[in-house]
Write a protein that binds this DNA or RNA. Structure first.
Length: 476
RNA sequence: GCCCCCAUCGUCUAGUGGCCUAGGAUAUCGCCCUCUCACGGCGAAGACCGGGGUUCGAGUCCCCGUGGGGGUACCA
């Protein structure tokens, strides 16, 4: 069987981590099985669509590397991929349903429905539509429809079965009593189609094999299953993912913030790290490995190891996963990734010897964007820096050490971390200083603090002219 | 109201009746490495929602309760 998964967001704005987690599972699963990942935009409800919403979604997915094989922008043989332009499919399907009496026209008004609900409310059972229009004689029905009487189309929920059973790859077998399910509307009085109906028609039409989505949809599944059955289409494999909650344990809101993909991107999280972290929400690697590359993920993903309980976002853990991903990068690579995040207005000199700079600071970065807060260490405010350096050199003992190191540095032919480290030690040896007595004053002179990266790396990052300039200030 | 689902350290989780005096990860704390910081290594502390069953034996199975989530829409 060809595996075809899909992600079907509404264009209501930026993607939050819960949505993206669903997209990620679908993508990973498709890749795992060598299948296709389809992107479909559910823009049925025009009022809720946000301008630019679709573009934002495509951008967020692309950034995460969740590329689609078929979608609104690139088309595909099962198109179109926007619900708003698939009316002909829905109409044709409804027509077929009507002809087979699997659906019927309902003339009840909202008021009638409300009155009926009240009447049937015995306080003990589900309140649902009685299905009375289902019994209208065929001739009468034809006449009323022909006369243009307002009506919607409802599904005639099968009465010959007592329950409808859903097999969910994550939640197991779940059954719903048929009499709990009312004859639900598939086409509204105004002609628009309902969500439950459109998804099923599209999933059938696009030959989707696996429907992986949030548990929020589990309760809708029986209705959809009825539709698949009534349309004589094989039901797809269902898999409902547990809900992703915010760090506060509450539902992810539209007010996104730190839970938006775009925000994470702006903060400088690597896409692979985000994908890695997201995959760990509700799923675990068979060997409980947690730092996983994209291909590790593709190889190991599966619905078998997905849990059922809701999960909470934990930014600390995300940062940890991210730091491990940065740790896997080559120096050249990480430097290239960090570069765009440097605040050059604040640190105009940071980009010179940039690779050495990143080398000095990389172990303290969890994200690319963290660079700026560590650049401050190397490039403190120059305002009173000179004065401070002079102050350090004013102590004769310290001065002796600094001068000795300075001499060694001036004659040093190479300017790489190892050679620099050796030169500093040699300078110290010249005046019999070592350990803290040697390193602390030198570091204090260079960056204004005794604590910080290895001296060799600091010197390499500053570069010869800048480093010697700071020595001059301290030793003049 | 009615229906469906969920429930292990703060958080992410392992765990499918005996391997569990519950394992890992993160965060926290301590020690080590080291000139210092960061990284790394080692260690400590920290959980089976409650109550009944079933069983020789239950975190694991069943029932009830509690808490949380979803549905009950001519929302998606």
């Amino acid at each position: 069987m060809t595996v075809r998964t899909r992600f079907a967001p509404s264009p209501t704005g930026r993607l939050h981590l819960g949505n993206v987690r669903a997209a990620a599972f679908n993508w990973l699963l498709a890749k795992h099985h060598g299948g296709s990942f389809v992107l479909r935009i559910e823009d049925t409800d025009a009022d809720r669509n946000v301008a630019g919403g679709e573009e934002a979604i495509l951008e967020d997915l692309s950034w995460l590397g969740l590329d689609w094989d078929e979608g609104p922008d690139i088309g595909g043989e099962y198109g179109p991929y926007r619900q708003s332009v698939r009316d002909n499919h829905y109409l044709a399907t409804i027509q077929g349903l009507l002809e087979r009496d699997a659906a019927y026209a309902c003339f009840c008004t909202t008021e009638q429905l409300a009155a009926e609900a009240e009447e049937y409310d015995d306080g003990r059972t589900a309140q649902r539509y009685s299905g009375k229009c289902r019994n209208i004689e065929i001739d009468e029905r034809f006449e009323r429809v022909s006369a243009g009487e307002a009506h919607c189309i409802r599904i005639a929920v099968p009465e010959d079965i007592q329950s409808i059973n859903i097999k969910d790859e994550i939640f197991g077998s779940i059954s719903f009593a048929t009499n709990e399910i009312e004859d639900f509307v598939v086409q509204r009085t105004d002609g628009r189609f309902t969500y439950n109906f459109a998804v099923v028609v599209d999933d059938i039409g696009m030959e989707i094999s696996h429907v992986i989505r949030g548990v929020g949809h589990l309760s809708n599944t029986p209705k959809q299953a009825i539709l698949f059955d009534v349309l004589s289409a094989p039901r797809p494999v269902f898999g409902h993912l547990p809900t992703v909650l915010g760090a506060d344990g509450k539902k992810l809101s539209k007010r996104l913030g730190a839970t938006a993909v775009a925000e994470l991107r702006a903060q400088g999280f690597p896409p692979d790290a985000v994908l890695n972290y997201l995959s760990l929400l509700g799923w675990s690697h068979p060997e409980e490995k947690e730092v996983l590359t994209r291909s590790d993920l593709i190889g190991a993903i599966g619905l078998e190891r997905v849990g059922k309980s809701d999960t909470q976002l934990d930014e600390e853990k995300l940062r940890w996963v991210s730091s491990r991903h940065l740790g896997m990068e080559e120096l050249q690579e990480i430097a290239d990734h960090v570069r765009p995040f440097v605040d050059t207005g604040m640190f105009p000199e940071a980009l010179t010897n940039f690779q050495a700079t990143v080398d000095a600071l990389r172990t303290r970065l969890s994200t690319y964007g963290d660079i700026n807060e560590h650049l401050e260490v190397l490039y403190p405010d120059e305002g009173d820096a000179e004065e401070k350096r002079q102050g350090i050199g004013s102590d004769p003992e310290v001065r002796k050490v600094l001068t000795a190191v300075q001499k060694r540095l001036i004659i040093l032919p190479a300017w790489d971390p190892e050679a620099l480290d050796q030169a500093v030690r040699a300078g110290g040896k010249d005046v019999e200083a070592r350990g803290a007595a040697l390193f602390h004053p030198v570091r204090k002179l260079l960056i204004g603090s005794e604590k910080g990266p290895d001296l060799g790396k600091i010197l390499a990052a500053l570069g010869r002219p800048e480093a010697l300039r700071r020595f001059d200030q301290g030793c003049s």
